[in-house]
Design a protein around this nucleic acid. Structure first.
Length: 470
DNA sequence: ATGTGC
């Protein structure tokens, strides 16, 4: 794989073979995937998709994924037969991050720490399988799929202000529950308000450093403040929807004369029956994921209020696994694009019309969870941001889960975290080992490279005080 | 990521 170093933080893969556009990898030498890991080959494969414009992009946290790399961004021109691919969204549709801020500082947390973590541990269903904050009646699921966080708020779980601090006001309006299989719905019914497993977590954090005081203040953040970060997605429902629609699309590829270099890139034109079906189901899963984070956030706020007298205010909620229909200027032309962000976060700049009035001058908060025991970041979009206003989404794995389990002793890891002053409420020893920070890139470096590449700007750095592990 | 594998 030939990489052309354009700047210290930007590498290009020139068009060759069936590529319709070049590949662009935002990374430092250190963060580039090791040769043979397959992620760069996936960037090339994505560049062959029908209708792709600009480039096949990869963020500094990129690594190998299903079809598309995780950390991949690709946009297709809807009017020119551009495709949508479930592999460009990922199995955990609308997996994302919610950050809430408390009117408490680090010293307050030290006073109540064990009680707060016990309370959050009890209030936060986690691990594979069932258990959820919100026991929905069957009829309620349809509302969640159509209305997302708005339905949770309408049922008393949150406030109108919360919705202003959610991407899309808490719900996508093009959800089509008719495209959600009975099996997907059955899996989703009992999981609204649950973390799941893998890299999902709820963390209590402290604001350790502020890079932009004005923007931080607009976001509701100040030094030493206690925050709660929640990272989770659409659970079994999103997974089943992805499985169902990959299968359906795979069967319709020939009808649209589509060929792809990897079967995991199964796709359909956005403007086709299969494409619309997937996007309607994907939006339903996205609404489910937003409601999931909404009710988990409210449950965490209730715990904090009960113990300390102070609840939590929402900073923002943003997804990093989505395909969205957006308007962008490409080579001087205004185009309607299907922007896939898979393990990549939208980063709208100050002044963008999609931002709510309270964030219009600051830009969109970008929430970057670090690996366990390491820092997390709040960033914001910048004018002229490349890759359709996108940036990284986290630290990015360097080791597979299997490799991590082989090389990490879960008990030693827990001891190290607690010695570092981080209170741990786990789910399973294996889950803890899989998520060891040694299995991840350095989030500080990932974020520095994303900023150096001109994708976003740092606003605040948060450090963990306690983790409820999925 | 996922009732972790058809």
């Amino acid at each position: 794989m030939e990489l052309v170093e354009e700047t210290p933080y930007r590498f290009r893969i020139d068009r060759h073979g069936d590529m319709r556009v070049p590949g662009v990898v935002f990374a430092s030498h250190r963060l580039l995937p090791s040769a043979g890991d397959g992620a760069l080959e996936q960037v090339v494969n994505v560049a062959t998709l029908r209708g792709i414009v600009g480039a096949s992009y990869a963020m500094p946290d990129m690594h190998w994924g299903y079809g598309f790399p995780i950390g991949g961004v690709a946009a297709t021109d809807v009017a020119r037969g551009g495709v949508v691919s479930p592999g460009g969204v990922g199995f955990d549709i609308s997996c994302g991050v919610r950050l809430l801020a408390a009117d408490l500082d680090r010293a307050d947390f030290r006073r109540f720490g064990e009680r707060i973590m016990d309370g959050l541990g009890r209030a936060t269903p986690r691990g594979p399988g069932r258990g959820a904050v919100w026991q929905l009646p069957r009829a309620g699921l349809e509302h969640v799929l159509l209305e997302g966080s708005r339905y949770a708020v309408a049922r008393g779980r949150g406030t109108q202000r919360d919705l202003e601090r959610c991407e899309d006001g808490g719900a996508l309006d093009n959800a089509d529950p008719g495209q959600v299989s009975a099996r997907a719905a059955a899996r989703g019914l009992g999981q609204v308000g649950s973390l799941g497993s893998g890299n999902h977590f709820l963390e209590v954090q402290a604001v350790d450093e502020i890079y932009d005081r004005d923007v931080a203040e607009t976001f509701g953040l100040h030094p030493d403040q206690v925050c709660v970060m929640i990272h989770c997605g659409s659970r079994g429902l999103g997974h089943q929807i992805c499985t169902d629609h990959v299968r359906a699309m795979d069967a319709t590829m020939a009808d649209h004369s589509l060929t792809v270099p990897d079967r995991q890139l199964a796709c359909a034109p956005v403007d086709s029956r299969a494409g619309r079906a997937y996007l309607g189901a994907m939006a339903a899963a996205a609404n489910y994921a937003r409601a999931n984070r909404q009710v988990l956030g409210v449950a965490a706020s209730d715990v904090l209020r009960e113990i300390t007298g102070h609840g939590l205010e929402l900073v923002y909620d943003i997804s990093h696994n989505m395909a969205k229909i957006e308007q962008h200027e490409v080579a001087g032309r205004q185009l309607t694009l299907c922007v896939h962000r898979k393990g990549a976060t939208r980063a709208l700049p100050p002044g963008h019309p999609d931002l709510p009035p309270s964030l219009r001058n600051a830009g969109q908060p970008v929430l970057i969870p670090g690996s366990m025991g390491t820092a997390s970041y709040v960033l914001t979009g910048i004018p002229g941001g490349e890759a359709f206003f996108s940036t990284c989404h986290g630290a990015g794995r360097t080791q597979s889960r299997h490799q991590a389990v082989k090389s990490v002793d879960a008990r030693a890891l827990r001891r190290d975290l607690e010695r570092g002053g981080i209170l741990v409420r786990g789910s399973s020893a294996r889950g803890l080992a899989e998520e060891a920070p040694t299995a991840y890139k350095d989030v500080d470096e990932v974020v520095a490279v994303a900023e150096g590449a001109g994708l976003c700007r740092r606003v605040a750095r948060l450090v963990p005080l306690g983790v409820v592990k999925g």
